[in-house]
Structures are given as C-alpha cells and as structure tokens.
Deep mutational scan, measured.
Amino acid sequence: NKFNKELQWATWEILNLPNLNEEQVKAFIDSLKDDPSQSANLLAEAKKLNDAQA
C-alpha cells in the first residue's frame, strides 16, 4: 500500500543521512513506525536537522 512504500522510502532516506547521530535516527524511525502517515513530514524534519548539523 501507499503508506508502506512511503514508510520504506523515508526509513531508507533517514538511515542514510550522514549528520544524524544514532539516537536521532532511532527517534525518527520510531516516530515513523508510530505514525506512517507522517512519513513525508518526518523525512523533511530529519533532512532539516541533518542540514543544520552539517
């Protein structure tokens, strides 16, 4: 289903952001699991944090 694909993509993207630490990655992944419908928003937040920590 649509959410599953978005969830998988967002998870992969977050796991490959170079500037997030392990705790941050885990928090984002946990949030994705809690509410897959928010995957696009969570991914945007993760990318923002990644850029801020570059």
Rank of each mutant, 00 (worst) to 15 (best):
A27D: 07
L17A: 01
S37M: 08
L20K: 00
S31P: 01
K47Q: 13
N1W: 00
Q8Y: 09
W9D: 09
S37P: 03
N1P: 02
L32N: 00
K26H: 12
K2H: 15
P18D: 06
L7Q: 12
W12F: 09
Q24N: 02
A10Q: 04
K48I: 10
K33W: 15
Q8R: 06
D30Y: 07
N50L: 01
K47I: 05
Q38R: 13
A46S: 02
L20W: 00
E22W: 08
I29A: 02
L20F: 01
E45R: 08
A27F: 04
F28Y: 09
S37K: 08
F28D: 00
D30L: 08
A40V: 13
L17N: 01
A44T: 13
K26A: 09
L15T: 15
W9V: 14
Q24Y: 02
F28T: 01
P36M: 06
N16P: 01
L49N: 02
W12A: 15
Q24F: 01
A40M: 15
Q53Y: 06
L43S: 03
A27H: 14
A52V: 13
Q24I: 04
E6K: 03
A10V: 14
Q38M: 10
E22D: 14
P36V: 06
N19T: 04
A52G: 08
L43I: 13
K5L: 05
A27P: 02
D34I: 10
D35H: 09
L43G: 01
N21S: 13
N50H: 03
Q38W: 04
K48S: 11
N1Q: 04
N21E: 07
N41E: 11
V25H: 07
Q38E: 05
N41R: 07
L42Y: 14
E23G: 09
P18W: 04
S37W: 07
L43M: 09
T11V: 09
A40G: 14
K47A: 06
L20T: 00
Q8L: 10
Q24G: 00
A46R: 00
A44E: 07
L42I: 15
N41W: 11
L32K: 00
W12L: 12
V25F: 04
N16T: 10
D35E: 06
N19L: 03
F3N: 08
E13P: 02
S39V: 15
L32Q: 01
A46H: 01
I29M: 08
A44Y: 12
K47L: 11
N1V: 04
N21K: 14
T11F: 11
L42N: 02
E23M: 13
L7S: 04
L49I: 10
L49M: 08
D35F: 08
I29N: 02
T11G: 03
A52D: 10
E13F: 10
D34W: 11
S31W: 08
P36G: 03
F28I: 05
S39I: 15
N50G: 01
N50W: 01
D51I: 06
A10T: 10
L15E: 14
L49A: 03
I14W: 02
S31F: 12
Q38A: 08
L15V: 09
Q53K: 03
N4A: 03
I29D: 00
D34Y: 12
S31A: 11
D35M: 07
S39W: 14
A46G: 02
P18S: 07
A52Y: 12
D51F: 09
E22A: 13
A52L: 12
E45G: 04
T11P: 02
A40Q: 14
A54I: 08
L17V: 00
K33E: 10
K2F: 10
A54N: 06
A40T: 11
N16I: 07
E13D: 03
K2T: 11
S31H: 12
P36A: 05
N1M: 02
N16Y: 04
V25S: 08
P36Y: 04
D35Y: 08
E6L: 07
K33N: 15
W9R: 09
I29L: 11
E45Y: 08
L15A: 05
E45K: 08
S37F: 08
A27R: 15
E45H: 07
E23A: 14
A46Y: 03
D30H: 09
A52R: 12
E23T: 10
F3R: 00
F3L: 09
E45D: 10
K47D: 02
E23D: 13
D35R: 08
L42P: 01
L7D: 06
E13V: 07
Q24W: 02
E45V: 08
N4I: 06
Q38N: 13
N16D: 06
A10H: 07
Q53P: 03
L7W: 12
Q53D: 03
Q24L: 04
A52H: 13
T11L: 13
A10P: 02
E22P: 14
S31T: 12
L42K: 06
T11D: 03
D35V: 05
E6P: 05
N19E: 04
A27Y: 14
E23I: 11
I14D: 01
N4S: 04
K47E: 05
N21A: 12
N16V: 05
N41S: 12
W9K: 08
N16G: 06
W12P: 02
N41I: 11
A46K: 00
A52E: 14
L49H: 03
L42A: 05
L32M: 14
A27T: 13
A46L: 02
N41V: 14
K2R: 06
Q53M: 06
Q38L: 06
P18E: 08
Q8W: 08
D51W: 09
L49V: 15
K47P: 00
N50R: 00
D51N: 12
N21Y: 13
E6Q: 05
L17M: 14
N16L: 10
A10S: 05
A40W: 10
N19V: 01
K48A: 04
Q38F: 04
S31D: 09
T11Q: 09
L32S: 01
P18I: 09
E22I: 10
E6F: 12
E45F: 06
L20N: 00
S39N: 06
A52I: 10
L7T: 10
P36K: 03
F3I: 12
A54V: 09
A54S: 11
P18N: 06
N1I: 05
W12S: 15
K48F: 09
L49K: 06
N41F: 14
W9L: 15
K5A: 15
F3M: 03
K33M: 12
Q38H: 09
N50P: 00
L32H: 01
P36L: 06
N50I: 02
E22S: 14
K33D: 05
D51K: 09
N19K: 03
L43Y: 06
A10K: 03
A44H: 14
L43T: 05
E13K: 06
N19A: 09
V25M: 10
L15S: 11
A10N: 04
A54G: 13
K33Q: 11
F28L: 05
I14Q: 01
K26D: 06
Q24A: 03
L17K: 01
L17W: 02
A27I: 11
L43Q: 03
K5W: 11
N50D: 06
N21F: 13
N16F: 05
N19I: 01
L32Y: 02
W12K: 10
N41H: 12
L7H: 06
A46F: 02
E22F: 12
K2I: 12
A54R: 02
V25E: 02
Q53H: 07
E23S: 12
P18L: 07
K2L: 14
A44G: 08
S37L: 06
